[in-house]
């Protein structure tokens, strides 16, 4: 994947995944370098009623601390935040994290679109948004909002996704900046700047 370069000042990375997402994220998140300057936010659809062990599962393979979000948590650099089951995750000024119990969006709570739209409003062009494997169309609207705000849009190549529908829906709605295999998204992540230390 030579020649792919990221916009310089990415402050936040938002990632949405559905079916097949646990496996995809277990491969992808370890590519985030220790000391990453940006903050990372993940929405993963899970079947209802499952308690969440995601932070633990991803924390084991990731160089960065992984946290399940508590309402009004401050946003720290170099930290991965995972939406808790059955709540929408939003970014608010501060920046801080906010949860809501609003109706599901695209049959989903947490919804990828809800996270992406609030992140687009807050970070504008300093945002990198990634849509991974999944069924359904959640995230397509959100990715369009990221694009309107000047953020960088990445979609997993549908043929590379274990469930292609969600990335395909996103591509119908927007022309992503990058359409990549998981392997290539990992290389992209490795390029993300670390805090100057």
């Amino acid at each position: 994947m030579s020649g792919l370069t990221l916009p310089a000042a990415i402050e936040a990375v938002v990632i949405g995944a559905s079916s097949g997402g646990v496996e995809a994220l277990r491969r992808l998140l370890p590519a985030l370098p220790a000391g990453l300057a940006a903050s990372v936010f993940v929405v993963l659809h899970l079947p209802r009623g499952r308690g969440s062990l995601l932070a633990e599962i991803f924390g084991r393979v990731c160089a960065l601390p992984v946290r399940e979000v508590l309402d009004k948590d401050p946003v720290l650099p170099g930290t991965v935040y995972v939406a808790p089951p059955n709540y929408h995750l939003l970014l608010d000024s501060g920046p801080q994290l906010a949860l809501s119990m609003d109706e599901p969006v695209e049959y989903s709570r947490p919804s990828i679109t809800v996270l992406f739209e609030s992140a687009a409003a807050l970070y504008g062009p300093r945002l990198l948004a990634v849509i991974l494997t999944g069924a359904g169309a959640d995230g397509a609207e959100g990715l369009a909002a990221v694009q309107r705000a000047g953020g960088c849009c990445v979609v997993q190549l549908p043929a590379d996704a274990s469930v292609p529908q969600m990335p395909a829906s996103a591509l119908q709605r927007t022309s992503a900046d990058f359409v990549l295999t998981l392997e290539d998204i990992m290389s992209l992540f490795r390029q993300l700047p670390r805090s100057s230390a």
């Binding site: 929408h88 939003l90 970014l91 906010a98 809501s100 609003d102 809800v114 409003a121």
Partner: peptide
């Protein structure tokens, strides 16, 4: 009220 979700509604 928390702004992000208020704005959405």
């Amino acid at each position: 009220y928390a702004r992000a979700s208020l704005r959405r509604r």
